[in-house]
Design a protein around this nucleic acid. Structure first.
Lengths: 109, 109
DNA sequence: CCGCATATATAGACCATCTATGGATAGAGT
DNA sequence: ACTCTATCCATAGATGGTCTATATATGCGG
């Protein structure tokens, strides 16, 4: 059959920012969280996740800190910056606007 | 400011198929229709539209026919095939599933 | 000590979309 | 006549996000 993306392209940064807005997390945890909350519909591949986190770091929307996990492993914890929180707001409103627009096209008889 | 796509990537084929499901249209008309119905939020650039139509033709989801427009111009009218109608249904349900999943992630407190 | 889940990261491929063109014609306005 | 604008098609090349594949490393349970 058709091979499809596990993600709606263009939404990954927003999903990461939103996940981090709840609590700081390491990369692996972000992927697990999105997968779990989306009920396995959205799967963030490592090859998408880590480049995305690098982008977000470069833009100053998240910051990173090496720590130990509860299970005593080394992991890089990411958290939202003030700029990241602002950016999340922007992306959410743009996303909603776009969804509303797509909805209009899809519902037009 | 941030430069962003005028479209949510991954939705173009679906929007075209849905537009053609209402009535056959030429390329330019498809772009105008989506722009109008979305109230100027979604803009389909020509460099996105025509390659997309070629893809859809190759997959057999639309067929094309040269005709005259009401204003006496030559134009290529695209219309949905049976396979295209089926494909539209598939894409709509996948899209809704994905939107529901994204919604769960975005609404999680 | 073996296997598995946890954890980070990069290189390269792929593909959809955008930018930038190029071309053609009907009709309106001057 | 002439020009301008909107209508109409199409492609080449750049861009950029996501995926596949790979590499590395470690804590823990059996």
């Amino acid at each position: 059959m058709e091979k499809r993306s596990e993600l709606l392209p263009g939404t990954l940064d927003m999903l990461i920012l939103k996940t981090l807005a709840r609590a700081p997390l390491h990369g692996y945890g972000i992927a697990l969280s999105i997968k779990r909350i989306s009920e396995d519909v959205l799967t963030v591949e490592e090859g998408s996740l880590y480049p995305a986190l690098q982008r977000l770091l470069l833009k100053g929307w998240v910051k990173a800190e090496w720590k130990k996990t509860e299970t005593n492993r080394r992991a890089r914890y990411y958290s939202l910056t003030a700029a990241g929180r602002k950016q999340l707001g922007i992306e959410l409103s743009q996303f909603e606007q776009m969804m509303a627009a797509i909805g209009r096209v899809l519902q037009e008889t």
